[in-house]
Design a protein around this nucleic acid. Structure first.
Lengths: 206, 206
DNA sequence: CAAAAGTGAGAACGTTCGTTCTCGCTTGCG
DNA sequence: CGCAAGCGAGAACGAACGTTCTCACTTTTG
């Protein structure tokens, strides 16, 4: 019952679990999910099949865990982008596109995991499709919070989200990170236009 | 050697080929490519495996043919949208988003075939990835032509393309066609802003 | 009509899939 | 020490994959 030992054991299992998730994420992301068998993952992660199935009772369960982990990473990236730098909502929104530009520059960048997975499994795995839908709705809701803070109409959030999604797929397919800069420029125009037209030229008393 | 018979035979082969392509497209689009085996396609299309492999020497070849056919359909939709209605480049650009709105309304809409296929196969099938990249570049180039006609700077074409891509993935994942309208509104703002700022308030002679 | 070529239905091939099982070996604990 | 439990390595399972082959039957053709 020594708590130290108990904790160490738990933490080791957690470490292996994390290692498996990282490896699965890398393989799925680079090759697609169906193209990566449990054997390939076993070899790459250096973990026995028994332990694999002990950590994740099925491949679908593992895929969900990978997506769940990615969601956390994405949210961290977004929050870091928002929290770092300016505290003006307009600039915080733009910081999201700067974050995208850095991400697109990574060597193994191949688009958004959620979009890729939706295309591959969305038609046959409703639970995974729902998870992806939820994640995207979450991101849109976060943008909507910031848009509200700017005082612009809520529709702007949808437009900004579409730009972010489009930048990810465009960058992935084209193989360049130009899309992030184009999306940022477009977002700037949309935000500033929304702010300008929302504040009527002849100010009314309030 | 009767030319009529020869032609009829050829045309019948073409009909079967087209029927196979339509069936494969439907199955691949709804379930993903890896999830649809040649047996399932054989059953669904009512064509023998022998004829299937006589028409398409391999599954990858078939996938390429499906994408090639979709590219033609997409180009037709774009050109019809551009040709129908206004002949003002600005409105022709916006007509593309109206076309998207109609497309998103289809019952079996599940996003852009090219984006979905890139996510699933782009990492392992370079030839297919290149085909997809080429198709997207083509679409961007078409937008660029129209943008040039408006007199707006070329960067606008990239922004509009990103909006179109983002609308497709957003509509697919969310399961609504709202994204098309949001993208259209954003496109309107971007185009009009580009046109306004490109024509300086104090007109120069030209 | 007879011979040759082509066809559809589906069995069969070898491989790979997701998952489970076997079997020595280690390990923790009385 | 002895024993139960858990482990890694990998064999094994049934199913499904892409592809090829068999074979009885049409169709074409001289």
């Amino acid at each position: 019952m020594a708590p130290a030992t108990r904790n160490r054991t738990t933490s080791q299992t957690e470490q292996i679990r994390e290692h498996v998730l990282i490896t699965a994420d890398r393989l799925y992301y680079s090759r697609g999910i169906n193209a990566v068998g449990m054997d390939a993952l076993r070899n790459e992660a250096g973990v026995s099949l028994k332990r694999l199935y002990q950590l994740f009772p099925s491949k679908e369960n593992l895929v969900e865990a990978v997506l769940h982990r990615r969601r956390g990473i994405w949210n961290s990236l977004v929050e870091t982008a928002i929290a770092t730098g300016s505290d003006i909502p307009r600039d915080q929104l733009l910081a999201v596109y700067d974050m995208l530009a850095h991400w697109f520059d990574e060597d193994d960048f191949r688009g958004c995991v959620f979009i890729n997975t939706f295309g591959e499994l969305g038609g046959t795995a409703p639970h995974i499709a729902a998870l992806i839908r939820d994640h995207k709705a979450n991101f849109q809701a976060r943008l909507a919070e910031l848009v509200t803070q700017t005082g612009a109409p809520a529709a702007l959030a949808h437009q900004l989200a579409i730009l972010a999604e489009g930048a990810q797929t465009t960058a992935a397919i084209a193989g360049t990170n130009d899309a992030a800069h184009h999306a940022r420029a477009a977002a700037t125009t949309l935000i500033d236009t929304a702010l300008a037209t929302n504040r009527p030229q002849a100010p009314t008393t309030g």
